[in-house]
């Protein structure tokens, strides 16, 4: 198993871990929405958001290196988009010219800004998932009125995710052991056969699971809602968080 890294620190023991999950969910979603929908934010907004991320990660004892490594997930798309974007801004000092496309100093700044902004949003999400295990996240979503059937499906998904992931990894390892690099042209077709094998295994497993559940008298759908009233610390956290976020949003032009 190499995949405990998904929510490695979720079962930690800090004040943030013990906060009510609904509060964390709503405040984090609010922060991400603010970051994503502020066009051309100023330095105070970006700096303030970065400070909040830093503070939260220190407080929840999530190493910064881990945060950075995980947020690299945005690089393939954002990097591609930021580079494409940078070549479309003609103002500023010309740094590089390829054909009819020019890269200017202003454009580099804007591209980096775009990257930084989506990086911050991703950091908020990483902190959320690392202070709130997925099953508790599902319960929080359920008490925020997401349909029970969908939560049930997601819970099933999560239950079998690691199992099938292990299986996929085993199959990949077996392929790598027996297949000496070979011609890269054959690789997609080989992958296709692996996918079929994996699908048949998961389909048969789902049949067994369905039968076993019905044999034990499963009623079709049920997902317990655990609603506990908000404690004082939860209300305090949401008030401070919301005030901070809204005041940063008011200062977005500076």
């Amino acid at each position: 198993m190499h995949h405990s890294y998904l929510d490695k620190f979720a079962r930690g023991n800090s004040l943030i871990h013990h906060l009510d999950d609904r509060v964390k969910l709503v405040v984090t979603f609010f922060a991400v929405i603010l970051i994503a929908s502020t066009p051309q934010p100023g330095k105070i907004f970006i700096g303030g958001m970065a400070a909040i991320v830093l503070f939260l990660s220190l407080f929840a004892r999530i190493p910064l290196g881990y945060l950075l490594a995980r947020s690299a997930i945005i690089l393939p798309f954002s990097g591609f988009a930021a580079v494409t974007y940078a070549f479309t801004i003609p103002e500023g000092r010309v740094l590089l010219q390829i054909g009819s496309y020019v890269l200017t100093s202003h454009a580099v700044e804007m591209g980096a800004f775009l990257l930084l902004r989506s990086g911050l949003a991703v950091c908020f999400m990483i902190i959320l998932i690392n202070t709130c295990p997925f099953d508790r996240l599902l319960s929080a979503l359920r008490s925020l009125k997401v349909p029970a059937l969908f939560i049930l499906l997601l819970a099933f998904f999560y239950r079998f995710l690691y199992l099938l992931w292990d299986e996929a990894e085993r199959m990949q390892r077996a392929r790598n052991l027996r297949y000496f690099g070979g011609r890269w042209k054959q690789q997609p077709a080989l992958l296709g056969r692996l996918v079929t094998a994996l699908f048949i295994r998961s389909y048969e497993r789902s049949e067994r699971v369905a039968l076993a559940m019905q044999a034990r008298g499963w009623d079709g759908e049920s997902w317990p809602i655990k609603v506990s009233p908000l404690a004082h610390k939860d209300i305090l956290y949401s008030l401070i968080g919301m005030t901070l976020l809204i005041s940063l949003w008011m200062l977005r032009r500076f």
Partner: peptide, 27 residues
């Protein structure tokens, strides 16, 4: 008729997730 379908859908989603982990090298 969803009763037997729920494990299948959950499992298929997990399958897609796992299948996306399998990768093949390109040049």
């Amino acid at each position: 008729r969803i009763r037997g379908r729920i494990p299948l859908i959950g499992m298929t989603a997990a399958f897609v997730f796992a299948a996306q982990m399998l990768n093949f090298p390109i040049a």
